[in-house]
Structures are given as C-alpha cells and as structure tokens.
Simulated scan of single mutants.
Amino acid sequence: MEMIALPVAAVLVALALLHAYWGTGGLWPGSSRDTLAAQVFGGPLGTPMPSVTACYAVAGLLILASWLVLAASGLLSAAGWPTGLIRSGAFGVAGVFVLRGGLGYALPRLTSGNHTFARLNRAIYSPLCLGLGALTLLSLLG
C-alpha cells in the first residue's frame, strides 16, 4: 500500500537525517552533549553519546529501512534484488520497530533511571517505533 509506505519512509529518512546531524556534532534537542545524551540515549548523568560512527551507522540503517519499505511497496525499483528478499527485509524492519517499541515499555533501562529519557521514551520514542512497525506491517499486508 503506497499510501502507507510513503509517509513511513519519509519519517525514516527524517530520523536518518537527525542521526547524521548528531554525528556531525549537532546538539538539538539538547544544549550540550550531556543534555542530548540524557534526552535521546538515556543512562545515568554523564553517559556519553554514541560515537560518530554509531550515529552514521544508524542513519545508514534507517535509509536502508526506508528503501526496503518503498521497494517492497513498489514505489522504488529493486532491480536485480529478489522480491522475497526485499519483502523479508521490510518485514524485518517492521519487526525491529515493533520490538524496540515494546521493549521501550518493558526494559527497566528504558523506563526508569534517567527520568528525562524515560519520560520521552514513554511519550515519543516507543509509540513512534510501535507506529512505524505497525504501519510497515500494514503496508506489506494491505
């Protein structure tokens, strides 16, 4: 279902750009590396942000995920790639997001400790992951 796949892919690209921005040293929505880490990574105060390499790796994986979602829906060419592999990859994307969203409510590290992160995780990160996973599944099954 193209009508679902396109906005899902757009959100994935936006998230990829945000991770790349962090990889370049960007601080939004924080005001320092410490406040950014507290808001988007969690852990006790002073927990360092993931490395530049990790930020870029996540950005790359999010771009790959967006391509898989679009290719599985027929909106982008997957010339040379087996349809089954593309669809399996897109189902994998859905599974990863559903798993992350669900674990965001279940794992103590994601639900307690750093109160800023725990609050943002419950209000934004986990629901976003669950929504992306569910919409990806819907685009594949629709």
Rank of each mutant, 00 (worst) to 15 (best):
C129Y: 15
L68P: 11
L75F: 12
H19L: 02
A10V: 11
S66P: 09
G60A: 06
P44V: 08
G113D: 01
G30I: 00
G113C: 06
C129K: 04
S51W: 12
G46D: 02
G46F: 11
M49P: 11
G60N: 07
L62C: 00
G102Q: 04
R33Q: 15
G30W: 02
G46I: 01
L17H: 11
G142W: 14
G131V: 05
L6S: 15
G80H: 06
G25F: 14
G43T: 02
F41V: 14
A106E: 00
A65P: 14
A37S: 15
T116D: 05
G102P: 08
A37H: 13
G25H: 14
S88N: 12
T47Q: 12
V98H: 04
E2S: 15
G104S: 01
W22Q: 00
V11K: 14
A9T: 05
T47P: 11
L45Y: 14
L103A: 07
G104E: 01
A38G: 11
A16N: 04
W28P: 11
S139M: 08
L75Y: 09
F117M: 00
L135A: 03
G131E: 00
G43Q: 05
L99D: 00
W28D: 01
V93W: 13
S31N: 14
G92D: 01
N114W: 12
G104L: 06
G84N: 01
V40Q: 09
F91D: 03
A118Y: 03
Q39H: 13
T111F: 09
G142Q: 08
S51L: 05
G46L: 04
L62P: 04
G95I: 08
Y105D: 01
S112P: 09
L110N: 07
Y56P: 10
G131K: 00
L62Q: 06
G131S: 07
T53W: 15
G95V: 06
I124A: 15
P108Q: 06
G43P: 12
S139A: 12
A123H: 14
G92S: 02
G95N: 04
Y21H: 11
V11A: 15
S51F: 13
G30A: 09
A72R: 10
F91R: 12
A118F: 05
L107G: 09
L36K: 13
Y105C: 03
W81F: 12
L128H: 07
L140T: 02
L120R: 15
W67V: 05
S66R: 06
V96A: 14
Q39D: 06
G84F: 04
L128Y: 04
L99W: 12
Y125A: 01
A59L: 03
I124Q: 14
I4A: 02
L110F: 13
S66Y: 08
L76C: 10
A72G: 09
L18T: 14
L135M: 04
M3E: 14
A79R: 15
M1S: 13
A94G: 10
A134I: 10
G42R: 05
W67P: 08
I124W: 15
T35M: 09
R122F: 13
W28N: 05
L140A: 08
A94F: 12
L15D: 02
G84R: 01
W81L: 12
A94K: 09
L27V: 08
I4W: 10
L36Y: 13
A10H: 06
S32C: 13
T24W: 13
G26A: 10
V40S: 11
A72S: 11
G23S: 01
G74E: 02
S77V: 03
S88E: 06
A14M: 11
I4Y: 08
L12H: 05
V58L: 13
G25E: 07
L68K: 06
